[in-house]
Amino acid sequence: MAYNEDLAERIRQNIPHEDLLHFTEKKMFGGIAFMYDDKMSVGVVKDDLMVRVISDKMKKVMSDPAVREMDFTKRPMKEFIFVSADGYQSDARLVEWISLGIEHARLKAK
């Protein structure tokens, strides 16, 4: 298993209905990325949830014990985080992460 397909399916099921038409999927990072208007928003790499977060919210987000900087390239990537399974167990928490990813994509579209 290259990435957690159950998590990918949960993301599909929890994308807000009004945003569904904005999303496409693309395989990358050895996993899957969910693109909002062609901008990476959330994804799955192995068992981690990958989320793009606007800079202003990074400090608060990084205080969550389930979160670490995305270091896929062995160096932290700006505005990218990984969330471990503890941080997305409930659908309510998963929706919060998806919302942060959508927020980042919308901001970058302007």
Rank of each mutant, 00 (worst) to 15 (best):
L100N: 02
F80G: 04
P65I: 08
S84E: 13
L20R: 13
Q89W: 07
V45G: 05
G101I: 00
I98Q: 06
R10G: 09
L100C: 02
L21Q: 11
V51C: 05
M77I: 12
A8K: 12
A109H: 04
I32S: 02
A85I: 07
E5V: 14
L21G: 12
K78F: 00
N14A: 11
L7M: 09
D91G: 11
D19I: 08
G31K: 00
P65H: 10
S55C: 03
M28A: 14
S55G: 07
D86G: 15
I81P: 01
S90C: 06
V95M: 07
V67S: 01
G31Y: 00
D47F: 06
H22C: 11
E79Q: 13
M70C: 12
V61T: 15
V83W: 02
Y88F: 14
M58Y: 03
L94K: 01
R68N: 12
A33F: 11
F34V: 07
K57P: 08
G101L: 00
I102G: 04
R12W: 07
I15K: 00
Y3V: 02
I98V: 13
K108V: 11
M70R: 04
I54Q: 06
D71W: 04
L100A: 03
R12A: 10
P76A: 09
D56L: 09
N14K: 11
T24I: 08
K74S: 12
V45D: 08
E18Q: 13
L21W: 06
E5C: 09
M40S: 03
R68K: 14
V95W: 00
D19W: 10
I32E: 02
D64C: 10
E25H: 03
D38A: 13
P16T: 05
K27F: 10
K39Q: 14
K26P: 04
K46M: 10
K60A: 15
D19A: 14
M70I: 03
D64I: 08
M58A: 04
L49F: 01
G31Q: 01
I32C: 03
Y36L: 00
E5P: 07
E96L: 04
F72L: 15
I32N: 00
D91K: 15
E9P: 00
Y3M: 03
G43S: 13
G31C: 00
R93L: 05
M1V: 09
V44I: 01
V67A: 01
E25D: 03
E96T: 06
I102M: 08
V53R: 05
F29C: 06
E96P: 02
R10L: 11
D48L: 12
G101K: 01
A33L: 14
V42I: 07
D6A: 14
T73R: 11
L7P: 03
M58D: 03
M58W: 02
M40W: 02
I15D: 00
T73K: 11
D37I: 05
